[in-house]
Design a protein around this nucleic acid. Structure first.
Lengths: 241, 241
DNA sequence: GAGTGAATAATTGCATACGATTTGAGCCAT
DNA sequence: ATGGCTCAAATCGTATGCAATTATTCACTC
């Protein structure tokens, strides 16, 4: 895997785990030393993510994790409603035992103590921790252990969509998931909205096992509706946007 | 506009105009000298496009314009069917006179002699642009002149979708357009399939003017179906995939 | 003490440089 | 001629360095 790929993975993972708070700056030096490369491949990785819309480059200020408005969230879920049902439809008859097993695996609770979003990189000078030392560096992505809720959520959906064989569509949906992940994490931890989501996942998986297209589609539609409502409400209420 | 943005524009434009044939390599030195910068921002721009899926990086071999299979085309149009109707739906009640005028403008015939795909993205050395200063060609996107058919097509759709205010969705659709553009150009020029597409555009614009949602949606659906059929058929027949 | 402006530090964006990898040409043996 | 081997040219990927921009500190005024 190329260095740029590694950088991309590192940052996407960080986003899914809530390590990069919305509005925080992704310091190139910091990422470079953390990953162990120079700033050049770091910048290239960030540019990839910029292409995907997961970060935004501001002239002479670097890359920032975009903050989400309620309107953004509505758009994101509208796009998910446009894409995910088609992916599911395409994948459903092709789902292998492995896919289903992987989805089931992602259903187990995985909550992990993620590095709390420290308002990272925010100019306000309370980064008394000295240089960025001692991050456990996570490394290999082999065993499925210590997934954040959003990581597990994406792993579940991806397992069900992958069989569609739509690389581009899968990438697009991953982006949409990652785009809302920082916020989903926030409201999940505050409101504990994971219960209904989990139940819907179970139901969706059962429908997929039964190859019951109609039930699967209905469940997915409900799932998206509920997730959108929860996020948008939270953005409007607790976030003032 | 940052240098990376300029590179991105340059390459996307080249793709929409058919200047970079599918399968050809995007030589970093060549792009760098053509645009008048070093290879670093060129690479960053290409990485952005890689994030968008418009080019693919192969280790130690650089960036290549991906070739499309019939399956890829089917996926692309499925995604367009998932996204574009929603964009149109959202935009329809918000369309301004300017949007409609812009769409109408894009309807006029614009065929221009594009640099024919010269096989492998080999340097066509007649583009020497002495000064290292930012080349003033290409310029802003103000006047609509000399658009390739695919550029005009995208300009038309963009004009109708922009009012939705969905930045991410618009970007996604642009990617989908650019991804098939090289092939659409090829079969358009060979088979002259532009006639029905143009008629559908006219009809779609009229429906939008009348704020006739149902008619607009039906027209768009037909439009996508026809475009997909034409492309997929061509890929299967004349391209052997 | 709050506001202001210059000096300093931190950070970015890009050019250059160089080792590493791939491509291609020439040469030899078969 | 054809296939394989060697070496040179082309090209890539990344580290380093530097000018330019932005952020922060701090002395100074009111």
């Amino acid at each position: 895997m190329s260095t740029v790929d590694e950088v991309q993975r590192h940052v996407v993972r960080g986003l899914l785990r809530g390590e990069f708070a919305p509005g925080s700056w992704l310091r190139q030096d910091e990422l470079a030393t953390r990953i162990g490369v120079s700033r050049v491949p770091v910048r290239e990785g960030l540019q990839r993510l910029a292409g995907l819309g997961l970060v935004r480059f501001e002239p002479n200020r670097g890359a920032v994790v975009p903050e989400l408005t309620a309107a953004d969230a509505i758009e994101t879920y509208a796009l998910r409603r446009g894409i995910e049902p088609r992916l599911l439809d395409q994948a459903l008859p092709r789902l292998s035992i492995v896919d289903l097993a992987e989805a089931e695996l992602a259903l187990e609770p995985h909550e992990v103590a993620a590095s709390p979003p420290d308002g990272a990189g925010r100019s306000s000078g309370d980064l008394e921790d000295g240089p960025v030392r001692g991050s456990p560096d996570v490394a290999a992505d082999g065993p499925v252990s210590g997934l954040s809720p959003t990581e597990a959520n994406w792993a579940f959906h991806r397992a069900l969509y992958r069989a569609a064989g739509w690389q581009r569509g899968l990438a697009m949906v991953e982006i949409l998931h990652a785009a809302v992940a920082p916020y989903v994490l926030l409201y999940t931890r505050k409101l504990g909205g994971a219960a209904t989501s989990h139940a819907e996942h179970v139901e969706l998986l059962a429908a997929c096992r039964a190859r019951d297209r109609e039930r699967a589609q209905a469940t997915l539609a409900d799932h998206l509706d509920h997730a959108e409502t929860a996020l948008v409400d939270w953005l409007r209420r607790d976030h003032g946007d």
